[in-house]
Write a protein that binds this DNA or RNA. Structure first.
Lengths: 147, 147
DNA sequence: AGTCAGCTTGACGTTCGCGTAAACGGAGGC
DNA sequence: GCCTCCGTTTACGCGAACGTCAAGCTGACT
């Protein structure tokens, strides 16, 4: 019976920067299922690993339901061929979606960097000046029409 | 008075894959402000560009409030030095956040690719077989403990 | 004139991801 | 014994982002 390191709910919340309410909520949603000592929850390394995956999933925009689905794919008791085929497909879909999202992020970053450069140009040109200035734009843009 | 191409609400919803309710909601939130011909909304190229930015913002996880803030930064009537400095800072913050998110996405993709490979390995090994099989894991993982 | 599609404005409903009280149970220190 | 943490359950609340009616206007065809 190998028993690795365990964590109280407080330890985990502090380490991960979430509230205990959040952990209980994840448990209610079936994403975590820590052991119990009486009433108290006691989290294993595996629970901690799952939690990290959950939180990263949230950060990239997955719903808890989607995250549960992914965890269930890892977890499936029935590791038959059909299960693996299903999992494979789901994983592949997620990857495609994430790569699209990565593209969106790259584009957003690029656009923000452009905006940042424009601000910088303005600030270096009009170094200490205070008079408001209009920005000239070309083509269609989200900027106000400057006709 | 150059008047570019315009769009009805239906055209825009079809092109962008959103409902008219969504467009009206964005308008309520001050993210869009199309012209009117009588009652009917009539969207300009600029509205369309803003909408694309809004939708991409949503896809990368921005709230409508955050998106409005960004649009307002572009839009600010008062293009004084102080405004630009403020905008510059906000843009830089967004970029940092997005790059962190990009890291999360890359890690998620990597993890899913690993899972996919494992599934593939299983499927090629146990080619046509149907008997459930256990998976051996090393170290701590989200997978069930395989002691 | 009728009617029909397509637009409009309210306004209430829904889902998600927790927040936030209320009320209680040990365990340890003074 | 009492206080202070740390933990528990139950359960209502909330803001965000729309969905989903209901009801009315409007131009266009028949």
């Amino acid at each position: 019976m190998k028993m690795g390191k365990t964590y109280s709910i407080r330890q985990l919340t502090k380490e991960m920067g979430v509230t205990s309410r959040t952990l209980r909520h994840y448990e209610d949603e079936g994403l975590l299922s820590p052991e119990r000592q009486g009433l108290a929850r006691i989290y294993s390394q595996r629970d901690r690993a799952r939690l990290m995956l959950i939180l990263r999933g949230r950060r990239v925009g997955f719903s808890l339901a989607e995250i549960r689905e992914i965890l269930d794919l890892y977890n499936a008791e029935d590791h038959g061929v059909a299960q693996f085929q299903h999992s494979r497909k789901k994983f592949a879909e997620r990857i495609v979606a994430l790569e699209a999202q990565r593209k969106d992020i790259d584009e957003s970053i690029a656009e923000l960097k452009l905006a940042l450069e424009r601000a910088d140009n303005f600030l270096t040109e009009h170094h200490a000046e205070q008079n408001p200035v209009r920005v000239k734009m070309t083509g269609y843009s989200v900027m106000p029409a400057a006709e």
